[in-house]
Amino acid sequence: MSLQRREFLKIVGSTAVGAGALSAFRFLAKGEAAQILGSANKNQKWVFLVNTYNCVGCGMCVRACKLENEVPYNAPVSRTWVERYVELDNGTVLADSPNAARDGFTADNPMGKTINPADITKAFFVPKLCNQCEKPPCVQNCPVGATFSTKEGIVLVDRTWCIGCGYCIMSCPYGVRFFHPVYHVAEKCTWCYHRITKGLKPACVFACPFGARQIGDPTNLNDPVTKTIATQRVAVLKDEYGTKPQVFYLGLDRIVR
């Protein structure tokens, strides 16, 4: 091979510079990302993080979700909701989510009770949404195959195939699914599939003024959400069901159901 000394140095130099630049933005191999999330889906593209410390219970997320996804605003159904947990020093736990927190929490009246602030030991808000489980019981249970998981792990419902039997609604351990009052089919949170596939944030994440809801890219270790999940003490809801949920929570407590 007749390689000039000058050319050889050029190639070596540019490769080294290139490698240096690339290592600063290291993307994880498919397997590596799945390992961090404890997920077996190597094509997973999104992961959700809820920081309960930052949630103030304003309910802007619920309002935005309903308006974005055309969920009937005044019907008692919602794709996402915010729960309030108040634990008193006598061990009583009060948990409520009036109207799915569509109008926020504007009074200190958990479950309609008046409480003395001095009696509160713990009190906080927990936003809930579809966990886009890696092993979704709703998908497994659908007798007609109307609900399915996309390659990236988002669980969707085909409104033209759903017969409205309600098996999936019963099988979701998180109570995320409901019957759509207009279309008479099963309805659920899609993490705003139409937005995330265009590079936008889900409506609830977009509407949250306090960053309590965040979405991230699990294949990028420099993504703040992925970094948090990989390095902080996060928890998932109802791990014992083996559904492998993909919504991670900061600041969960045993009183959260």
Binding site: T106, A107, K122, F124, F125
Partner: peptide
């Protein structure tokens, strides 16, 4: 509305 909820930003 101020809610006296410790460990919550509220």
């Amino acid at each position: 509305t101020k809610l006296p909820y410790p460990t919550s930003l509220r």
